[in-house]
């Protein structure tokens, strides 16, 4: 019998996520874009991804331990968007960033 190696559970609304150690959010003034920087890595954030990271995983004070669900509430309010329409996309994005080591729980 062979079983697949354990994979981490997907990011859920009750999780609290933050930037992984060694990852920083920075504005790249030369190229005028927002990026996540890690060792030898750069990830360019589009506007949606930037807002999601800021709302749900923002570094520093204000991150204050808010859950992913609370971040989604904030985004829905800030962009006057139906919560259901954005929740799935935000969770998928955060899960992807977590799997690639940019975020941690």
């Amino acid at each position: 019998m062979s079983s697949a190696p354990p994979r981490p559970a997907p990011v859920a609304e009750t999780d609290r996520v933050r930037l992984a150690p060694g990852v920083v959010l920075r504005h790249d003034r030369t190229r005028d874009q927002w990026v996540l920087l890690g060792p030898e890595r750069v990830l360019v954030l589009d506007e949606t991804a930037l807002e999601a990271v800021r709302a749900c995983a923002a570094p520093g004070p204000g991150a204050d331990g808010a859950s992913v669900g609370e971040g989604i509430d904030r985004l829905a309010a800030a962009f006057d968007a139906p919560r259901d329409a954005i929740a799935g996309d935000v969770l998928e994005l955060l899960d992807d960033l977590r799997n690639r080591g940019f975020l941690t729980r």
């Binding site: 190696p5 354990p6 994979r7 981490p8 890690g38 977590r98 799997n99 690639r100 080591g101």
Partner: peptide, 14 residues
């Protein structure tokens, strides 16, 4: 390659 799936989200592998 066998180890990679279980390291996802825990350890970035280059």
């Amino acid at each position: 390659k066998e180890r990679l799936p279980s390291l996802k989200g825990r350890l970035v592998v280059d």
